[in-house]
Each structure stands twice: as C-alpha cells, then as structure tokens.
C-alpha cells in the first residue's frame, strides 16, 4: 500500500493502481468518458487529467493511466486543470454537437458553446467498444482504422464481420451512445457509426419469444463447454 494526497486528503492505494482508481475509491470525482473498470485504460478522452507534483514541478497527466506512488501529491480541480478540461470538452462538443451525453457533460463542466468548427459525429474514438469486444467478449470484431482525421471505428474492410456475435456489448458501453442496437422480430440490428450488421435471434422453445442472437448463444456454449440445448429456453422459461 502507498499513501498519496489527493486534493489535500491522505489516501491509501494499492501499488500498481492508478490515480483515478484511488480517487474513485475515496469518492473523489474525476470526469471520464473512455474509462471502464473492466478493460485496460487507454487515455483517449483526456478528461480525467489531473495535476501531479514531482520534483517540485507540477504536470498534467491522465489519471486513468498514471500509477499511484508513495508521497504523490495530486490535485483534481485546479484552475489549470479546469481550463484544460474545458478546452478538451470544447473540442469534443465541436465533434459531437448533437450528442446528448457530450452536451450534458459539457454543461456540467461549464462549457456552453464551442469556438471550433462544428462536425456532426456521435463517436469520439475512445475505443471503449474496441477494448470491450477484445478483452471482455474475447472476439475482437471491431477496431479503430485509418489515421488522423480519417480515423474511424469499423470492422475490417468495413464489411460484415465473421467473428462478431451480435452481443451488443459495444453498444452497451459506448459513452456517447454512438452505436445503435435494436431487436425487431427475429432480427437484431447493430448500427456502428460506419457500417451495420444483422443477426438472427433464437426463439425460446417454451414461450416463443425471440431472445438472443444465435451466434452469441453458440459462442457461449462453445466457450463455457455447455450442452448444445443449454439455451433452448429463454431465461424466463428456464427452471
């Protein structure tokens, strides 16, 4: 265990954990968009920036990536942080001016308008979907492709993915709701920002409701070594 100071409060944290984790543990709020405790931190959104003092100099670091250290002094809300964070928020707002999640967070951080040229995107390229698909689902159907201003979230060649199981985890974790996800009748539709896919749903043998994608159920059966009929019934009809 190491002891560090966050906003003047002494905080204990496990070695190897990050400032963000230590802060959350102590109920100290740091805004984030691309962070999720289940996946490797990525440092994409930069909203979690904090100031750390080292060798008498203070520098801005992404708290989701910066590891705690003995005697570390951290500030989470200095003037410098606030102005930098506002700038980041302005840039995000310029990219996604019509996104509810971005609008709400901007307002919360005191950003009402942006001075940058407006685009009309929903995705902030935080790669949370990519990480969840790879690390949690274990499939890796999507990734960030191209470079610079052409960077996009997509499947290889923008084609329907062979490996995607239609679980919708990407849509579930997306901080801006940029990924659409809908079950209509016997079909699940997943709308990514740059391409889309359809999945056939399995019908429950008892109640007849369509309840989960065939591919996802087959994947779980294979992965967990279940019997092939494990998912014949939906969760409501299982005894």
């Amino acid at each position: 265990m190491v002891t560090l100071t966050i906003d003047g409060r002494e905080v204990q944290a496990e070695e190897g954990t990050t400032i963000l984790e230590a802060a959350r543990e102590s109920n100290i709020y740091i805004p984030t968009l691309c962070y999720h405790e289940e996946v490797t931190p990525y440092g994409a959104c930069r909203l979690c920036l904090v100031e750390v003092a080292r060798n008498g100099r203070e520098k801005l670091v992404a708290s989701c990536l910066y590891e705690v250290a003995e005697g570390l002094r951290v500030k989470t809300n200095s003037e410098r942080i606030a102005s930098n964070r506002k700038m980041i928020m302005e840039l995000l707002l310029a990219r996604c001016p019509n996104n509810k999640a971005i609008q709400d967070l901007a307002r919360q951080l005191g950003v009402e308008k942006t001075s940058f040229k407006l685009e009309d995107k929903q995705c902030i390229l935080c790669a949370l979907c990519v990480r969840v698909c790879q690390e949690v689902v274990g499939v890796s159907a999507i990734s960030l492709v191209n470079r610079g201003v052409d960077r996009q979230m997509a499947t290889p060649f923008y084609e329907p993915s062979d490996v995607c199981i239609g679980c919708g985890a990407c849509a579930y974790v997306c901080p801006t709701g940029a990924i659409g996800f809908e079950d209509v009748g016997d079909t699940r539709y997943i709308h990514w920002p740059n391409n889309k896919m359809e999945f056939k749903l399995r019908k429950c043998k008892t109640c007849g409701n369509y309840w989960a994608p065939e591919k996802q159920l087959d994947y779980i059966i294979k992965k967990a070594n279940l019997s092939p009929d494990a998912f014949d019934n939906c969760p409501d009809c299982r005894d």
């Binding site: 790879q134 890796s140 159907a141 999507i142 990734s143 492709v145 191209n146 470079r147 290889p156």
Partner: peptide, 23 residues
Amino acid sequence: LAQVSQGLDVPLTQVYSVATFFK
C-alpha cells in the same frame, strides 16, 4: 491480410488497423 492474421494469431481487426494506419 487474413492469412497474416491467422498465421500470427493476431485478430484481423488489429492487422487491418495497422495496415490502414501506416502510409
């Protein structure tokens, strides 16, 4: 690209990301 992905046991997504990243 598909063959490289299989041969190196790297997801095709990662191969495609790298292939589209470098000019």
